[in-house]
């Protein structure tokens, strides 16, 4: 158990953890605040306590199913270690989360870059922040020395092309677009040919937001995906679902249905700084095996960071153990 404490101590020094610590202040404040209140030393460990813990987790958008499993684990741990001090449950909770979600596997959250050209496709429902995310990812990749190009694949929403264009100017990278209303697949086709001729390293493709239950729009996306794969071998190298952290359990349906159509390679979780919940992270991890690659923890260009589940849980429980 000293392991967790040790880990946290080392994390405190880690630079990357600071962003989580700030960005997730709201989530932490809520979860931790409630749990601390619940788990004081003179509280009896009984069913009422367990169901109160359940409430805290559900309120954080962790989801009913996931919550029930976590609390079941907690019950087992209490029995196994004959814990009778409620305060000791705090460390127990953190440990369970670590065991469930960190495991031994090392998940590579780096975006896959292959030579000579990599294509990253961004998909998601309306209003989750796809275009903004592309701006931030372009910034990340450009800082690493890549020659980046953005493709305005959202030819439907009013102002979407202009929005991406402004981002490309801010970041200072190449930009490809066709007139509004063009067939998005043809935009991709032309963009990839342009990219090949102009020695672009990474192509970031925007798409129009679509609700996952719109059959025609999902078929359109399937076609876009296919066209990209035909023009560049093994592309898209990353298909990233952009997900709004304030989304509730519908986030799971989104991940599932977009995965069916485009084989997602990862999730970008945006607006995590704005929610007191953000528990959807655990729900996605639990139900679908799609890694969360990037998280948006603020509004500036630098606030998109590679996701680290350890740091996420740390962010959730800093100073708690």
């Amino acid at each position: 158990m000293g392991f967790i404490k040790q880990l946290f101590q080392s994390k405190k020094k880690a630079n990357t953890a600071r962003k989580y610590s700030v960005g997730m202040a709201k989530t932490r404040h809520q979860i931790k605040g409630q749990l601390t209140a619940l788990l004081s030393s003179n509280v009896a460990i009984d069913e009422a306590l367990f169901s109160s813990i359940e409430e805290v987790f559900i309120m954080a958008d962790i989801g009913v199913e996931t919550t029930l499993e976590i609390v079941d684990d907690l019950r087992d741990a209490v029995k196994l270690n004959t814990i009778n001090d409620a305060q000791a449950l705090r460390e127990q909770i953190v440990e369970i989360l670590f065991k469930r979600y960190v495991k031994e596997t090392v998940i590579d959250t780096n975006l896959k870059i292959s030579k000579p050209i990599s294509v990253h496709l961004f998909v998601g429902v309306n209003g989750v922040g796809k275009t903004t995310t592309i701006g931030k990812v372009a910034y990340l990749l450009k800082a690493k020395g890549h020659k980046v190009m953005m493709v305005a694949g959202d030819t439907f929403r009013a102002g979407a092309i202009e929005q991406l264009h402004i981002w490309s100017e801010r970041v200072g990278c190449d930009f490809f677009s066709k007139p509004a209303g063009s067939d998005p697949s043809s935009v991709m086709y032309d963009a990839l040919n342009y990219a090949k001729q102009n020695a672009i390293d990474v192509v970031l493709c925007d798409t129009a937001g679509r609700l996952q239950n719109k059959k025609n729009l999902m078929m359109e996306l399937e076609k876009i995906h296919k066209v990209i794969g035909r023009e560049v071998p093994y592309a898209p190298h990353e298909t990233l679902l952009v997900l709004d952290a304030t989304t509730g359990q519908n986030g799971l349906t989104q991940a599932k249905l977009f995965d069916e159509v485009t084989e997602l390679t990862g999730v970008v979780l945006t607006k995590l700084d704005g929610t007191a919940k953000g528990g959807i992270v655990l729900a996605i991890k639990e139900t679908l095996n799609i890694p969360i690659k990037l998280v948006g923890l603020g509004e500036t260009l630098e606030d998109l960071t590679y996701f680290d589940i350890e740091e996420y849980i740390y962010g959730l429980f800093e100073d708690f153990v």
Binding site: A158, G159, A160, I161, E162, Q163, H165, I166, W167, R170
Partner: peptide, 15 residues
């Protein structure tokens, strides 16, 4: 604040 938000509304107005 949001890039092209004004453009978006203008386009909708035109439509």
């Amino acid at each position: 604040y949001r890039p092209a938000a004004v453009e978006q509304l203008k386009t909708i107005g035109k439509q």
